[in-house]
Nucleic acid binder design. Structure first.
Lengths: 136, 136
DNA sequence: CTAAATCCTAGAGTGGACTCTAGGTCAAGT
DNA sequence: ACTTGACCTAGAGTCCACTCTAGGATTTAG
């Protein structure tokens, strides 16, 4: 006997993913789920754990700056069925590269910002020797 | 005799900073310059190198996610004159911390994404042994 | 001298990713 | 039974940081 798959209401999915109920509906509307989410007799969405898992990965993609359109591209590939795995891989690799580039970029910014912080630290530590020295 | 300070037109500043002319006007409107930008006889903005320098730092702050409002706060402190350096330092430190946190966050995302990439790489390398194995 | 480029202001429009509202149906607790 | 809460749809509104438009003045290159 198969184990009963516990259908999840949208609120439960929201709680599990940190997304708002509104956002989850928006995601469905945008075609960001890997399958059509089924509805129960009264029209309510019935999610499964796999949908939650996907949303969690989705969240990482979004947090790391992948636009909705990028996620949709990936979803479309998955929905198209097996055979396009190299395309999916390419898409993920591209995003990985973008994230790495973004991290590098942030490190560069950090250098500049930290230099500024260090300058101010020196200035403030030296007490009000100000006047001769006006940092911005 | 003092060296003539070469006033820069907005277009030159745009070229030097990578910002659009529109964006620079917008910045001025939002009060993001450390001083009021003077105008020449016919009303055109006359920038100096110091303004460009500030914009370059500004760019780093923006690129690293500081909102306009945050930059404005800093500007207001600088414009208020000496004496509030500890506040400026606090502001910069906070931002530095946020950037570090963001980098950490991106690293977390990267782990997840790279794991996905690695999985697909294995799958694709193994040829079409698909069917038994359906990654998403 | 003239045409093209650059500049000006005020304000409207854009894009992305939600968030919220209105107006209603359905379910669950007491 | 009834009230509260979760859910539904369609569509409007929000926020941010620009970007673009219109209409006009000035500067510069040829």
């Amino acid at each position: 006997m198969a184990e009963k798959t516990n259908g999840l209401a949208i609120g439960a999915v929201a709680a599990a993913t940190g997304l708002s109920v509104h956002a989850i509906r928006f995601f469905e509307q945008e075609g960001l789920f890997l399958r059509d989410i089924p509805r129960n007799a009264s029209g309510r969405r019935v999610f499964e754990q796999q949908d939650v898992d996907w949303l969690l990965l989705c969240n990482r993609l979004r947090e790391s700056g992948m636009p909705i359109a990028g996620i949709r591209s990936f979803v479309e590939l998955v929905r198209a069925g097996p055979g396009n795995e190299p395309d999916r891989l390419a898409l993920l690799r591209e995003h990985e590269a973008r994230v790495r580039a973004r991290i590098d970029d942030l490190h560069d910014c950090l250098d500049v910002i930290h230099a500024k912080v260090a300058t101010y630290e020196r200035h403030v530590a030296d007490g009000t020797a100000a006047g001769l020295w006006s940092p911005r």
